[in-house]
Every structure is written in C-alpha cells, then in structure tokens.
Design a binder for these strands. Structure first.
Lengths: 330, 330
DNA sequence: TTGAAAGCGGTACCAC
DNA sequence: GTGGTACCGCTTTCAA
C-alpha cells in the first residue's frame, strides 16, 4: 500500500476503498501512530496559535484567569484540531518581540492578545507582520482584516454599577483603577463616571495599581474628613484589600462604605461581608475566543470570509452581595 | 552562494569564511528571516517542551503560580533556544492523553509535570512513551533515566513550622490540607504532624480542599468546645478564609488562634493581621526547572550525562508575621 | 481506486 | 571554503 492511500485514509478524504481505510485506521491506532506535526506544518503551515501573557504585575489578578480563558477556548479549538499554547513575557515589548520572532519562524499560525494597553507595542508588531490575531476584552479598533476581536461589554456593567450606587443614595463614589496603561480599566472608569455624573454624583478615579498602592490609596481616601461612601475596584483582589483597610480604620462595610469588586471571583463570596461584584464571564469569553480564532485562521487560509470582525460578550448583571448598602446618613 | 553555506553561517559552525558569515547574517537580519521551525524540527526533532497544567480546581491557588514558574524557567531556557509552552487540561487523564498524543506527533521534545497526585495517570503515560520529563515539586520517585526532578523541600519548612508552634506553647494544632490526591499536601501534613508529635502535641489534619469546604471545616473546628489554638493551611487563599471565619466567630487572631499559611504570596502581607507563611520560592523553582529541562533534553539527544537526577530547592525559613502568637492561657 | 513522484524548508554529508 | 544533493515525513498532483 502506498503512502498516498494512507494519507487519504487518515484525513478522511474520499477516493479510498472503505475496507482499505478501516485497515489503515486500525493499524495506525495499534501502532499508536500520529502524523508528525513538523512534517505536516512544513507543507500546510502551522496549525497552532499562541497567547503570550504579559506577566509584569500590571496584569494583576487577571493572571490566574488567563488559564481559565485558555481552557475555555481549547474546548472549542480541540474539535477543530487547533491547539492554543500559552507563553509568558515579562513586558509588552518582549511579548511583541516573541510574536514577531515566532511568526517569522512560522511557528504559530496566529496569536491571541489580552490585556491591551494604550500604545501597545504588540499592536504595532502584529500589524506589520501581518498575522491573524484575536484581540480579547477591548472594543474593536481600526484593524486589519486578519484580526478579530472578542469584546467584553463591561462598560455597560460599570454604568449599571453607577446607577445602582446612585439608587442606593450614594453621593460620593471613588474607583480604584488597575494598572495605568490598561485600556479596560480606563474604559470601566469612564463608564462608571459617566453614569454617576449623569446623576450629579461626585466621582473620583484613584490609581490602585498593585495591592500595596491600592492599600495606601484606600487609606488616604478613608482618612479624609468626608470620604466617599462607595468604592469600586477594578478586580477582586483589590476589593479584598479595601475591605481589610476599612476594617482596620473602623469604617463599617457596608454601612459607612459600600464596596463593589469590578471582577467577580470565587474569593468574592467568601469575604465578610461578601463582595458585590461585576461578573467576569471567563468561560463565555474563552469560547468566543476559540470561535474567533478558528474564523481568523480559516479566513487566512482559504477565502476571506465575511465574518463579523467582532463578537461582544456581555458581562451580565451586577451580583449584589453584602458589601453594598445605602450610605449611613450619619 | 549555496544553501549549505547559509545554514553553516547561521548555526555558527566552522568552515565558513568570516566575511561570508557576516554577510549572511546581515542579509538574514535585513530580510527578517528566521529558519522555519517546522523544517528544522523535521530534521532535528522538536525543540520545545510543554507543561500541561491540570486545571480542575484541585490545583487550587497554585494555578496562578504556574505562569510564574514558567516565566522563571523561560529565563533559563531562552538562552538555550528552547521554548516552554503551557497548555491546560481539565483532568489528570486529559493531561496524560494530550502528552501521549503530542509525543506521538513529535510536537514536543519533553514535558514538565507539576502538582503530582497519588496514582497519577501522567506518570504512567510518560513512563510508557518514554519522553524526557521534569517532575516539579515532589521528591524523586523511582524514575526512568530520561526524567529529572526538581524537589521543593517544603517538608523541612513544615517541620520547622511544627517546632515554631511548639515553642510558642501551642498544644493543639490542626492543618487544613489541600486537594485529596495532591502529593505535596500529604507530605506537608506528615512533616508537620511528625514534628508536633515529637513534642507531644496534638495534631489533626482536616481536608480543606476548595475554599467552601475549607470555610466549613474551619467553622466546625472553631465551634467545638476546645478548639485547636493554631491552624496551618496548604496555601495562602485558604489562610485568608481561616482569618475571615475566625473573625466572624469572634475568635481573635493571633491570641485565640494562630494561623500559618503554607504558601506565601503577596496577599499574605495585606491581611489583618498579616499572615505568617512558609515561603514559596517560585522563581528559584522555575530556574531549576529550566536547567533540569535543558539537562534532560540534551541527555536524550547526545550521550547520557551523569547529571544528578534531582535538584532540591529549599523553601527557606518561615516568614513570621502577625498571625502567630503564644496561645491565650484563657 | 491505487502507485509513483514532486515538493515544503531546512541540515548535513559529500565531493570539488 | 564552497557548491551539489539526499533526506526528514507528510500531502497532493498526476498517471496508470
């Protein structure tokens, strides 16, 4: 039997007698044989994509959820025979460098980019390649056709937080934003501030990048004479810090201070009081990333499909728990 | 100029005129050319390794540190031109399956395995391949020569915790262990229990697998008439839960209850009181993994080197913070 | 329906 | 020191 027959049989192409096919499949299985990725790639191009996680602390607590995202994406990708690898880089620049290099080496067929920042070196790098890419979390920017975005609609959710706090009667609200350059945290602050200003409520955004700085910021916020009656954070860890600082300063949560975590996580249910939080639908986000990636990889290989360049994943309604209440009239 | 000359020049082999070499390198650089991974792999075999993280919750808070580990390992590996990819699997069995498949596809040259469990399917799978592998965190088991281990000596650290608590005067100590099958948590409990028993101190290990169960366990532990005066956890998140439950039950930490986190993390410094913790030297662990991986990959390619099959990384001395004190004589 | 053969992009051996 | 060439393992075209 010739190699061509085997190849046909294994790849499910027609033109092989059913008996022959079965025999081939059986033997391959018995031998535990699988086609070598390298040989296959040499001919057809790489069949895998990569996500280079920037691991410099600015990503904050979202580092953990990267693996959740990938797991969810892999669920979708596995069925299509695509694998998604995760790598880490210690800076945005290094991430850009790695992607450039790996693209030149034809190691990966495309990339997934998370945690976009303003002036992101990765964007510039990818644009020049040009490699298929999926941008996760942030609104679609003017992008080459080989890109697709998966947008997390947390702006709506944060606006809702603003309305919620307004309805409770809060008049002064502060947000502890995440890392400086992170696009998502700025977008969240804008949405929250917009909703609050519309109700004529005082809003202030304070940099809470990193737990230590967050702790310091909350400290000075609460020590001032008339401090805000509600604090919204960018992530769950920072919200925990707020609770702790408040407790230390004898500020009662939720009566003297309401706290909202910008990203829900298991830990939010376990604090005292438990944390009201904006859902973070990693799983749906991951699935969407999987589909977007398949689209962008296929579109590149065959004809340009007219797929929507962007999918929006709703964050969902605020999960109200014990850390929010009407402000104490004092 | 022929392809052979180019290949020689780029790979730094001798037998090429210096002028020629420089010209080749310069042109390659200008063109942004890099050898295709697939073509290279086809001849020389894969040049990358993979870590398949089991992502089923049992890994607990250590999920986040996987990326730290990989980052530290990559630092070492980059210089040798080896890349380490991370993938996730939803169970030990799936991880084993993926490694088997990827080995058959000659996609990766070796694997890194973390979070070993008793009766681990990954061990059996890898043993049958046989693929070069680095086992992280647990003591060396009877292993094929293509394996190497990076051992975290947390047993010593946990024994030290026992002595520390004994010296403080505690007479009843409990440990909240992590996921059932996890080898490391069992080893830690054994070391702690051994040290305590030697001092004639009452020791009890309770399953605290998952935050909810941990909370419940601490609750019932503290509600009983004469509860332990010290609790040791397997990780930092669980320690946070202990603090919270204690606070809710009006058990004063550290005077009525001392708490020790089994794995130090940034969060341990920020609780009130801050958490006494066993250091978790991810970075050193990662570097060791990098070196071990290089060793095991090279040993496979060329001659069998007589490198030590196992590297031990000390956890280091207990970091004493505010959550531990002599027990209240009541 | 099957077999033979040409690449894919490098590396390494061989003469020159 | 340099150029020609076989080969890595698979896919695919073309003839039989």
């Amino acid at each position: 039997m010739s190699t061509a027959v085997v190849s046909y049989a294994l790849n499910g192409r027609r033109g092989v007698a059913e008996v022959t096919r079965e025999r081939v499949l059986r033997v391959a299985d018995e031998l535990g044989w699988r086609p070598a990725t390298a040989a296959r790639s040499l001919r057809a191009g790489p069949g895998a994509a990569a996500l280079v996680a920037v691991h410099d602390g600015a990503a904050g607590s979202r580092a953990a959820s990267t693996l959740d995202l990938v797991t969810a994406a892999a669920e979708v990708l596995d069925e299509a025979g695509v694998t998604l690898a995760v790598h880490t880089a210690s800076s945005v620049e290094q991430a850009a460098h790695l992607m450039r290099q790996w693209w030149a080496e034809r190691r990966y067929a495309g990339f997934v980019v998370t945690g976009l920042r303003s002036d992101d070196a990765r964007l510039a790098a990818l644009r020049h390649l040009p490699a298929p890419a999926v941008m996760v979390g942030d609104p679609a920017l003017p992008a080459p056709p080989a890109w697709r975005s998966v947008v997390l609609d947390d702006a709506t959710a944060f606006a809702q937080v603003g309305e919620f706090l307004a309805d409770l009667g809060h008049r002064r609200v502060a947000m502890l934003t995440g890392a400086e350059g992170l696009l998502s945290t700025r977008r969240r602050a804008t949405a929250l501030g917009g909703a609050l200003n519309k109700s004529g409520i005082d809003f202030e955004a304070v940099s809470g990048d990193g737990v230590d700085r967050a702790a310091a910021a909350v400290g000075s916020l609460l020590s001032s004479g008339s401090h805000p009656t509600a604090v919204v954070t960018d992530d769950d860890v920072t919200a925990g810090v707020v609770l702790d600082v408040a407790r230390r300063l004898n500020v009662n949560v939720p009566w003297q201070l309401s706290v909202v975590a910008g990203t829900d996580a298991a830990a939010c249910r376990l604090t005292t009081p438990s944390l009201t939080a904006v859902p973070y639908p990693v799983e749906r986000l991951g699935n969407a990333v999987g589909h977007a990636l398949l689209g962008v990889l296929r579109a590149d290989g065959t004809k340009r499909e007219k797929a929507p360049p962007s999918t929006t994943v709703a964050a969902g309604g605020l999960v109200v728990r014990g850390s929010t209440a009407p402000p104490d009239p004092r």
